[in-house]
Design a protein around this nucleic acid. Sequence first.
DNA 1: AAACGCACGCAATGTCCTTGCGAAATTGGG
DNA 2: CCCAATTTCGCAAGGACATTGCGTGCGTTT
Lengths: 160, 160
Amino acid sequence: MKLDTIDYAILEALQKDGRLANANLAEKVGLSASACSRRLDALEKNGVIRGYYARVSNKELGHDMTAIVNISLSGQFQKTLSEFETAVKRCPNIVVCYLMSGEYDYTLRVVAKDLADYERIHRDWLTALPHVAKINSSFALREVIDRPNVGIDAGLAKKC
Amino acid sequence: MKLDTIDYAILEALQKDGRLANANLAEKVGLSASACSRRLDALEKNGVIRGYYARVSNKELGHDMTAIVNISLSGQFQKTLSEFETAVKRCPNIVVCYLMSGEYDYTLRVVAKDLADYERIHRDWLTALPHVAKINSSFALREVIDRPNVGIDAGLAKKC
DNA sequence: AAACGCACGCAATGTCCTTGCGAAATTGGG
DNA sequence: CCCAATTTCGCAAGGACATTGCGTGCGTTT
């Protein structure tokens, strides 16, 4: 899909406030409400906007702890990978998982309530994942940045 | 803030669809629209819901590449850390940053358009960060999971 | 130059959000 | 155990909002 300046303005505004009312959004990007609504519709239908989400405080839910877990598998066969991935997707505490280049095969981000909860997850989920050869956990001491998306202006920003 | 079953239902629904209209949300959790609106208001005011955001397709924006970057600093002084973090926050391509325990001090997630773009970011931003002693980049080959939040049911789920 | 397509603004209609109010439920103290 | 205080609920009304059809203007194509 081809995007123009106004589309980028819409995306940027909705990245910051996903519940922004169409009327306010229209004003912000300099369009009438109807035109803005139609553009928004197109952005959603074409998959540019993949959805809207509420950002729930993990702390308020009692999930204070974040761990980065690196995992190596015992093989690289397609079947090995897909079995592992299927199992990973079942664990609600695993919020991010990438297949990686480099020393480890997968990098996970695991969220837990506390150390005891993490111990439970490690025991019941992580070590139960199939074909795992090596696990390496590091704990996050503090969250410095957690943006939902890359900035729309990422290509245009000045260097530091 | 104290949360009950209905609050959790509200959070869960809005984690999946942040633009869910209050009327539909009310029906889904079994409340009247007014009661639901008031609860939602309380959840927002108390910081349980930290905000709403649209999820924009990085692919549609041309940001196909994700890298995990581990960084060690030359010292652990408070001033060193805060100068580093201030600089990190300025880079729009860095979407996640944690202060970590373990071998490296920080773990970043960096989003780039392609390898050339990553090379630019590495040169103009990452190596320009203050007090950096060591950088280690790994590239994501594929995104297996990227959930916006830990599941509300994380504590209740059955093991695999 | 004319015709076509596309995006826009305006206006109307139907839906939705919010707030005030009284009733019901829950909680805590006597 | 009961009563009072506080909270939370549902209902109703008023105001705001989203959506759709329609006519207009602009740019492109033939």
